[in-house]
Design a protein around this nucleic acid. Structure first.
Length: 584
RNA sequence: GUGCCCAUAGCUCAGUGGACAGAGCAUUGGAUUGCGGAUCCAAGGGUCGGAGGUUCAAAUCCUCUUGGGCACGCCA
């Protein structure tokens, strides 16, 4: 095996360890040996050229030109002639002001594939060792339906939890459900007036939603309903037995239903501590904020004046508290209980100001860890014709979307591959996977236009494409193992994997770096797009080279490439909460 | 009114100061008498919203501007 001194080593720039080959580090080292340390570490300058004919890596020499007062073209050509090929570096050429570096693709491909073959991704776990991240996501409101709008927070948060776990962090997933507030007074009031026990049992979420819609419709005509709703919430707060009982019932039935949806999405939580959980902590929270000496009275309310933004309201005129107060109580509780290093709030971008206020209040209270609390905002799902309105009742239920996706997948299975075992589970994995992937593939912050065709699309850059590629690799490997009567793919010879093989290996070698980027940017789409590239590269490879041939070594070495793709695809899909199926 | 976000191909979107801005969808044309055609290959398609500026170099950074979205003390 080639000993280049860079495989499976630590990266001195980041201190992060990994199985990947750090080509840039190797090339930077090579360059340092050639030019000396005067020019500084060129690591950050090394880039991948936009075209194949410019080599595998390149360094623009404009920066050196300034430093050495020399024509960058001359510097590039001098460097090209001075640098001695060896190890991973096959040759260096200059083209204009660029130094183009060509690596030994055959060696790189083999080393990268072997490194990936060996690893169980253990090294990346060191990143978060001993660290805890608390993630607040999904957080639906019980009195409102679980609509398509809740999908984003749920899958982005669910994916981030897996990404952090994969990187060795202890993760605490919290579903901060909206289980308190005046809307419960309305629900109780509506249920007492029109309630139907059996309808509630049958489909709690939808039934509660119908009640909610009906309440608002009737309250338009009969304003006293509103008053009645407020009174019932009042009774609930005071611990009225009847109100309490109904509230408990609405709550537990709803959570049961939510859990069923979370199971379909393969998303889970460690705690379902909603707003009601913090009710008892509010008094001491207000006291704590006051005690820090940052509050003022304003128009009868208790506020914290903030620089460059509206003041934060801690307590209303009437003495009751607000959303912000509950969030302060919650974060103090979480800090105390889990002692987190990082806290994430996966909540829509419209609440950006709220979180800015929350974190600023914490900082002003002297909580240094406030800077390690992050709002992870995302764009809203928009409807082309009309804005979604909970009250009016034009909402798309998430379950309906998942059901339609699964049944569409089922139809395609019947048409294309009716022999598949576990058709129901397979269709579910494909349909739900398509919906999740469609949500995770783009940058969080962009608004998404709701579009049935887009959401149920199974062609092109979709989760289905990744699952299909994975399933095909799996079936290919089974065939290969049978053909050569081996228990798994192990051997590798010295034969070339071809240009397509290099492209595959180059991408696979980036896996850890891509996961780290997704983690540091709180951006699952980084992984989603990366996996598309991997699948595309594999399909190119697969199309250009027969894997199972009469030559055993050739078959096995190509099979190894396929197996590494399978490994990255299945691990990557897991990070996106999408099932990597073996047959479809 | 103030603040934040977005604007790149017909559509949906990548693009972390570097060479001629890239994908998918859609359109058109190809590929398999052997590993799964839910695949692969190719073609056409661009004033990177506009104007200044910084820089050797700007889709990328700064200022202004246009269009769209969101938020702005007693909801969450």
């Amino acid at each position: 095996m080639l000993s280049c001194g860079i495989c499976c080593s630590s990266n001195p720039d980041t201190g992060e360890r990994g199985m990947a080959i750090d080509v840039k580090r190797f090339l930077a080292q090579k360059l340092l040996e050639t030019v000396g340390e005067d020019a500084g570490d060129p690591y950050g300058l090394i880039e991948r050229p936009p075209k194949e004919e410019f080599g595998d890596y390149a360094i623009p020499c404009f920066g050196f030109a300034k430093k050495f007062k020399k024509d960058p073209k001359l510097i590039a050509s001098d460097l090209a002639s001075q640098i001695t090929p060896g190890g991973l570096l096959a040759k260096a050429e200059s083209l204009g002001p660029y130094l183009n570096l060509y690596i030994d693709r055959k060696v790189f491909t083999k080393e990268a594939i072997l490194a990936l073959r060996r690893t169980g991704f253990e090294e990346i776990r060191a990143d978060g060792e001993g660290k805890t991240v608390v993630i607040d996501y999904s957080s639906p409101n019980i009195a409102k339906p679980f609509g398509i709008g809740h999908l984003r927070s749920t899958v982005i948060g669910g994916s981030l939890k897996r990404i952090f776990s994969f990187c060795g962090f202890k993760t605490v997933g919290i579903n901060h459900i909206g289980d308190w507030g005046t809307q419960f007074g309305k629900l109780i009031s509506a249920y007492r007036r029109w309630g139907d026990e059996r309808a509630l049992e049958h489909d709690p979420i939808r039934y509660l939603y119908d009640l909610y819609v009906r309440f608002h419709a009737e309250a338009e005509k009969t304003p006293q309903f509103e008053q009645e709703g407020r009174e019932w919430f009042n009774r609930l707060e005071k611990g009225d037995e009847e109100a309490r009982e109904l509230w408990r019932r609405f709550r537990s039935l709803s959570i049961e239903e939510f859990k069923r949806i979370y199971e379909r999405l393969d998303v889970s939580f460690d705690y379902y501590t909603g707003e009601s959980f913090y009710e008892d902590l509010l008094d001491e929270t207000v006291k704590a904020v006051k005690a820090s000496g940052i509050t003022q009275m304003s128009e009868g309310a208790l506020v914290v004046p903030l620089p460059d933004m509206p003041p934060a309201l801690i307590r209303k005129q009437d003495g009751s508290t607000l959303y912000l107060t509950r969030d302060i109580a919650a974060v103090l509780y979480r800090k105390k209980e889990y002692d987190f290093d990082v806290a994430l709030y996966v909540v829509g971008s419209p609440q950006a100001l709220h979180f800015k206020q929350l974190f600023t209040v914490l900082a002003r209270m002297g909580k240094g860890w406030a800077e390690r609390c992050h709002h992870v905002p995302f764009g809203q799902i928009r409807f082309a014709d009309e804005a979604m309105s909970t009250r009016k009742g034009n909402i798309v239920f998430l379950e309906e979307v998942l059901d339609r996706a699964a049944s569409l997948a089922r139809g395609i299975i019947e048409e294309k591959n009716p022999g598949v075992r576990n058709k129901v589970e397979t269709a579910e994995a494909i349909g739900v996977g398509a919906v999740i992937f469609n949500d995770l593939k783009n940058s969080r912050i962009k608004d998404i236009a709701f579009d049935w065709d887009e959401m149920l699309n199974f062609n092109g850059e979709t989760g289905v494409y990744l699952q299909y590629t994975h399933a095909r690799i799996k079936s290919l490997l089974l065939k290969l193992e049978k053909r050569y009567k081996i228990p798994g793919i192990e051997a590798v010879s010295d034969i070339s994997f071809g240009e397509e093989g290099y492209e595959v290996a180059r991408l696979l070698n980036e896996f850890e770096a891509q996961v780290r980027r997704a983690r540091s940017e709180f951006e699952p789409s980084v992984i989603a797009r990366y996996l598309l590239e991997v699948a595309k590269a594999f399909n190119g490879f697969y199309n250009a080279h027969r894997v199972i041939t009469g030559d055993r070594d050739e078959s096995l070495s190509r099979g190894l490439v396929a197996d590494c793709c399978r490994k990255v695809l299945s691990q990557g899909l897991e990070l996106l909460c999408i099932r990597a199926i073996e047959e479809m």
